[in-house]
Simulated assay, not measured.
Amino acid sequence: MTTVGIATGAGRGTGEACARRLADMVDVLLLADRNDAAAAAVAKDLSGSGRAVVEPFGVDVTDREDLARLAERVSGLGTLRAVAHAESIEPEEADWRGIIEVDLVGTVLLGETLRPLATAGTAFVYCASVSPLMAHIEPDPVVAAVLDDAGQEGFLYQIREAIGPAVEDPAWAYPWATYGVQRFARAEAVRLGPVGARVCSLSPGAIDTPQTRLEAARHESVRQLIGRTPLGRTGRCEEVAAVAAFLLSDEASFVNGVDIVVDGGLCAAVQDE
């Protein structure tokens, strides 16, 4: 049996770090990224360095046809074993629509497309964020119902109506989107458990990336959050990927439907505020 893994956002940052871990966990690894050149560069670097045959795969996670091509490729290669989904857009990179489309809608569409390929032993990790915890996101039932149907046509209109104009601020769109990812992962765990597949979400805190450094330079609030992290530093993409690799491994065979926080203790430091 040929096992297949997928790492999304694999051309940089956490997605690339996850890809490097998955290269030793599956037989064939697809590096999915909107940036074809970035994915190809990582694939070239990884080729021959691990167990897997590594293949770049250009894909926009908000495009259903692209995702259908990805699922078809997986089916043609073997059995889906592990998915590390780290494709995302940060608040500084897009308006509220782009953030919600990529971070939440893209996650849901990817999950729905790959769901029929899940079997006993398949594991999914969807990267979210600690931002919903920092922002104290607690939706009422109406908003929760809308969030739970993020794959529907007209979702952006529906979520704007449900949450209100505040969601048009990228700094608020991001925690709402990643909260939706956490909810989706829990729901998928319930849906896929009967076939023996597992689903978790992973919520990093401040991770040392070019985007985090840019935000810290621009915003005092970001610098303060980093400063309040009990470990006294930002995290590394490799530290997030190590947790993702554990969740995708057989060692985590009874870990399902939970969100794992990787934040150096930040949430513990601010939980009572």
Rank of each mutant, 00 (worst) to 15 (best):
A52D: 03
E92Q: 14
R73G: 05
S47R: 14
L67M: 11
D95T: 14
D95H: 12
E55D: 11
A41G: 00
V83P: 12
L77F: 03
T107F: 01
S88T: 04
S47W: 02
L104H: 14
H85S: 12
T107G: 11
L46A: 00
G106T: 01
A38R: 07
A82N: 06
I89P: 00
P91W: 03
A52I: 03
V54H: 03
A38H: 04
G50Q: 04
G48H: 09
A84K: 07
E55I: 15
S88L: 01
T107H: 02
L104D: 05
A82S: 14
A41E: 14
T113I: 01
A43Q: 02
L46S: 00
T113P: 11
A40R: 14
T62D: 12
L70D: 10
A84W: 12
G48E: 07
K44Q: 14
S49A: 12
G58M: 11
L77W: 04
A37D: 14
I99V: 15
R73N: 03
G76Y: 10
A86T: 13
E72L: 10
G76L: 08
L70T: 13
A43V: 02
L46K: 01
E92F: 00
L67T: 08
V54M: 07
I100P: 11
L67W: 08
L114K: 01
G48M: 09
R115G: 00
T79K: 06
E87M: 13
G98Y: 08
S88W: 00
E87R: 04
A40N: 02
A86F: 04
V74N: 03
E92L: 12
A84N: 10
D103L: 03
A82G: 06
L104E: 05
F57I: 06
A68E: 15
R73Q: 11
T107R: 01
A94K: 02
I99R: 06
A43F: 07
A71T: 02
V108C: 04
K44Y: 01
L77D: 05
T79S: 10
E92M: 09
S88F: 11
E112S: 07
A68Y: 07
S88V: 06
K44A: 15
A94N: 14
G111W: 00
L77E: 11
G48A: 13
D63C: 13
S47M: 05
D60F: 12
E93T: 06
E87V: 15
P91M: 01
E55S: 13
E65D: 15
A84R: 06
V53T: 15
R51W: 08
R64W: 07
A84L: 06
G78V: 08
A86H: 03
A94C: 07
E93H: 10
T79L: 04
I89N: 01
A82E: 03
R69Q: 14
G48L: 09
V42F: 11
A68H: 12
A40L: 04
S47H: 13
S88G: 11
V102E: 09
E72S: 15
L110S: 07
V83Q: 13
E87C: 13
